[in-house]
Design a protein around this nucleic acid. Sequence first.
DNA 1: TTGACCACTTGCATTTTGCAAGTAAGATTA
DNA 2: TAATCTTACTTGCAAAATGCAAGTGGTCAA
Lengths: 142, 142
Amino acid sequence: MKSDVQPRSDCVFSNVLDLLGDKWTLLVVRDLMFFGKHEYKEFLASPESIATNILSDRLKKLVIAEIAAEKTHPENKSRKYYYLTEKGKALLPMLIEMARWGAIYLPDLERMQGVYAKLKSDPGKVRAAVLRSLRSWERDHI
Amino acid sequence: MKSDVQPRSDCVFSNVLDLLGDKWTLLVVRDLMFFGKHEYKEFLASPESIATNILSDRLKKLVIAEIAAEKTHPENKSRKYYYLTEKGKALLPMLIEMARWGAIYLPDLERMQGVYAKLKSDPGKVRAAVLRSLRSWERDHI
DNA sequence: TTGACCACTTGCATTTTGCAAGTAAGATTA
DNA sequence: TAATCTTACTTGCAAAATGCAAGTGGTCAA
């Protein structure tokens, strides 16, 4: 299903950026992918302090784009789980390359040194571990 | 040299997106990387029809971030060449993974079929060819 | 000297972002 | 059962970003 945004052209980069090309969307994907965050308040608690209307808007767009999916919390109807679809998990290689670029050109990010070291030694392993963790959570929750 | 944008956090994704996370910046990088475009009017002619003030702004930011560089045209002082720095060329793996994601999830983009086929058969070759082309242009012009 | 070209800048309207307060549904507690 | 709390938002409005269309200044060629 298509986003209702009119594509600017039929270039793959343009189309991807129509979906993901803002400062917040990929941070939500990051939280889903790497930080085991699945609920609205967890995303709100990320260090960048996203605004509530922006978070709501981005989650909605990710669901519409089928990059993420949502389900009502099994025990508490006030809460929702968000999680990545296969389409969303498939963004991992791009995010890994983004992080590898950052390892070289943004080396001083204190919080990233552990991740940078792992990416340097075995990016394949990082990828496998992330996917394993995502699937494990889904087995338990979906 | 740092951008004058205050980072939102010390996460690599957040920092990269502070530089690149809008709809236009990576399209300019795309034109530099893949389409042999080096001048302002060439970027203006891309199918997405970027606004002149936005293009100017994004080129300036790419130069400040040292992702691109500029030089006055050797024969005509009214014109400028823009080209990717090593830092800019190093975005290629991320762009390749973005395109590979698009090959799976945005398969119907008519303009992309040739690129999709090449990425499928030999992404390493694509990468090498792009870098070769960039360096060749630089030997002739910088 | 004039007109064309190129790379922008500018003023203003529109859109997006983000703040802060508020709302509704559901859960918990007294 | 009612009051309070929690959660996920929505809303109104201000600020910032985007983008349109016109304009500007420097350079070049005729």
